[in-house]
Structures are given as C-alpha cells and as structure tokens.
Computed example of a mutant assay.
Amino acid sequence: MKQEPGFLHILGRVVLLLCMLYFSWGAAFYITKAVYARIAWAPHGLIDFFINTTLGFVFFGIIGMTISQLFGDRNQHVFTEMIDALKRISQGDFHVNLEWGFDGRKEGQGRPHPYAQLADSINDMAANLKAMEELREEFISNVSHEIGSPLTSIMGFAKALKDDHLVREQRDRYLTIIETECLRLSKLSDNLMKLAVLDSERHSFHPSPYRLDKQLISLILACEPQWEAKNIEMDVEADETEVNADEELLGQVWVNFLHNAIKFTPEGGSISVFLSSNGDEAVVCIADTGPGIDEQDQERIFERFYKADKSRTRTVGGSGLGLAIAHKIVDMHQGKIAVHSRLGEGAAFTIELPVQIRE
C-alpha cells in the first residue's frame, strides 16, 4: 500500500519551491533595474510589473530545468546500475553489491529513501540466490560423491568376477559386496526422493489421532533382531500418549533414531527409550551408549549429507540424510529436536511434539 508523504516532507518541498520563486523574481527585479538605469528608461509601474514577473518565471523555469536535469542524470545512472545488476543476477552472477549514498537520506516520517530500499532489496536477493547456489553446488557434490563411491566399488568387484580362477568363497564375497553397495545406492535414492517430496508441496500431510506409545513399542519390537544380535539392553518407558499427527511420517522418525542408536551402540551396550506427556506436549528421548558426538558437530548433524564422524560412517554406512529427513518431518509437526552428547558418553536425542498441531 502506498504511503502518503509526511507533513515535514510536504513542508520542505513548499519551502524549496518558494525559495526558487523568490530567487527568480529577486534576480529579475535587480536585472531589470540595472537595465533601466543603463538605458535611462523609467517604465510605467504596471509595465515594470509585467516585465519583472515574466522574466522571473523565465528564470524559475531555467532553474527548475537545470535541477531536474542534474537529478534526472543521477536517477538515470542509478537505474542503469540497477538494471545492470539485475542482468548479472539473471546470468548467474550473484556477486552483486549496490552501494549508493542514500542511507542517510530520509523521506517522509523517517522512512528510508526509496532508492536505498530498492538497492537493499537487490543486494538481499543476490545474497540469497548466492547462498542457494552454494547449497545446490554442495548438494550436487555430495550426491556425486555418495553415488560415485559405491559405483566404483561395484565396478571394481564386477571386473574381478571375470577372473575364471576365482574360488567360490571369493566369488561369493565379491557378490555380497556388490549386493551391499546396490542396497546402499537404493537407500540413497529412496532418501533423496523422500527429501524432494517433503520439500515440495506434493506431499500429503494427514494428521489424525493415534497412540504414540503403541507406535514406539511396535517399532522397537520390529527392531528386536538387530539389537538382540548385538546383545544390547533395551530399556523402554512409555506413558500412554495420544497425539494428532501423521503416523506414517513420524514412524520414519522413530525408525531412523532407533536404527542409528542400534548402529552406533557397541556390543553389550544399552539403549533407552522414554516417552512422557504433560497434556500439551509429548516428549520422546532416545539415548544410547555409543561413542557420542563431538560438541562442534552437534549443530550440523541435521544438515543434509553431514557426517559427524567420517571414519565411523565409512564402517557402518549411511549417507547423512536420515537425520535431515527426521528434522524435516518434526518441523512439519511443529516440533523440535535437541541432542545432548559427549565423546565417549553416548548420545541422547530429545524430540518434543505438540499433542495437537496448531493451525
């Protein structure tokens, strides 16, 4: 909505206009007076008035045109710079930073100069597009790396299988590695598709009432073969809690955290799962006795493709997308995730969800 100019702004323009008129008529008066004295002519008062008035308006027009030309040239320069900047942005050059001396100028009731607002908007747009381009390049680089690694492995072992002198045990081992890498690629593709759908508006989000405690216990039992194979002690305490949420999406969150806890918990360790509710909020805490997460990595573990421990992830697999998916789903449910961990002391993830999603 367009804002009307303030009183001080209007008053300033009126004063400027009057000063120009007074200067023009004053100049006309003294010039005609000098001319009359030079030619020794004393015109009638009415004629003198008409001459002074006409000459004053001529001077006023000249001054107005001069000022308009000066500021018009500057405005033209400003708009040319802005158009050039927009062209550079459209061509993929986001290193744009327009700087003009409009910051100190105010218009109306303390509002920034419109040119300053426009320049700031262009600078902000360029900065945002630059950040998005950097994220896109990093994303492509990460995807290329994650895909390239298993493909190289598959290619190498497939080539080795051509050796007719391989014994059965070696052949089976190579085939198992190829199968594992294919599953890794399939999981990566599936996770990328999940993120793409969650980021878009195409995903169907259907919250409905259901028992969160029953869902957690069911998923923990489904993972029983995995934690029993590592002799992990599972401690579960779940209060009866009903939430209004998308059961399928939240199921992906719990499966991700449970699988990570089992994956990083050493043989004979323990995992704790606690669910509590205060009526307005449900809190789920999943803690393990694994190697923990360094403090400097804790702020970045929910970034896509970020791996807190590069050596550890090489041995246990993973693409660094699971936590990003979980974080996205929790955000969709208006919840939040916190991590508490120290190296060598395990990690605890706390997920807080509103029992009823706010409109």
Rank of each mutant, 00 (worst) to 15 (best):
Val236Leu: 09
Pro114Asn: 13
Leu21Asp: 01
Met132Asn: 11
Arg136Glu: 00
Asp246Thr: 00
Val167Asp: 06
Ala40Trp: 13
Leu192Gln: 13
Arg74Trp: 05
Val355Ser: 04
Ala85Leu: 06
Ala158Ile: 09
Leu166Gly: 07
Asp103Phe: 15
Phe157Arg: 14
Gly110Arg: 14
Asp73Lys: 14
His165Trp: 08
Ala42Asn: 07
Gln356Met: 01
Gly318Glu: 02
Phe305Cys: 08
Glu134Gln: 15
Arg300Leu: 04
Thr32Ala: 08
Tyr36His: 08
Ser153Phe: 12
Gln296Trp: 15
Thr66Gln: 06
Glu181Leu: 11
Glu179Lys: 15
Lys187Glu: 06
Thr66His: 11
Gly317Ser: 07
His9Gln: 04
Ile220Ala: 00
Met82Ser: 10
Val236Ile: 11
Gly72Met: 09
Gln76Ile: 02
Val35Phe: 14
Leu135Trp: 12
Gly6Val: 08
Leu151Ala: 07
Arg314His: 10
Thr241Lys: 01
Pro225Gln: 07
Ala287Ile: 10
Arg314Thr: 03
Ile351Glu: 00
Ala338Pro: 04
Leu212Asn: 00
Tyr210Ser: 00
Arg358Cys: 03
Leu321Met: 13
Pro43Ser: 05
Ala338Tyr: 11
His259Gln: 09
Ala326Arg: 00
Thr350Leu: 02
Leu219Cys: 06
Leu250Ala: 01
Ala126Gly: 06
Gly279Pro: 11
Glu134Ser: 13
Ile293Trp: 00
Glu345Cys: 06
Glu267Met: 13
Glu137Pro: 05
Leu175Glu: 06
Ala308Thr: 10
Met332Asp: 02
Leu135Gly: 04
Phe264Val: 01
Glu303Gln: 14
Ile10Glu: 01
Asn52Pro: 03
Leu17Met: 13
Gly61Asn: 08
Ser276Met: 05
Gly26His: 03
Asp103Lys: 15
Leu323Val: 03
Trp254Tyr: 14
Lys87Gln: 06
Glu242Ala: 09
Trp100Cys: 02
Ile325Arg: 09
Asp190Pro: 07
His44Leu: 01
Ala126Thr: 03
Phe50Ala: 12
Cys182Gly: 06
Asp235Cys: 05
Cys182Val: 12
Arg88Trp: 11
Lys159Ser: 03
Gln69Phe: 13
Thr53Trp: 09
Met234Arg: 14
Arg314Met: 03
Leu86His: 02
Cys223Asp: 11
Leu46Pro: 07
Ala127Ser: 10
Phe71Cys: 03
Leu70Asp: 12
Gly72Ala: 07
Arg111Cys: 03
Val78Arg: 15
Gly322Tyr: 04
Phe7Pro: 05
Pro225Glu: 06
Asp297Pro: 09
Asn191Met: 06
Gln170Cys: 08
Ser218Trp: 12
Phe139Cys: 04
Arg342Leu: 08
Val255Gln: 13
Ile51His: 11
Glu281Asn: 12
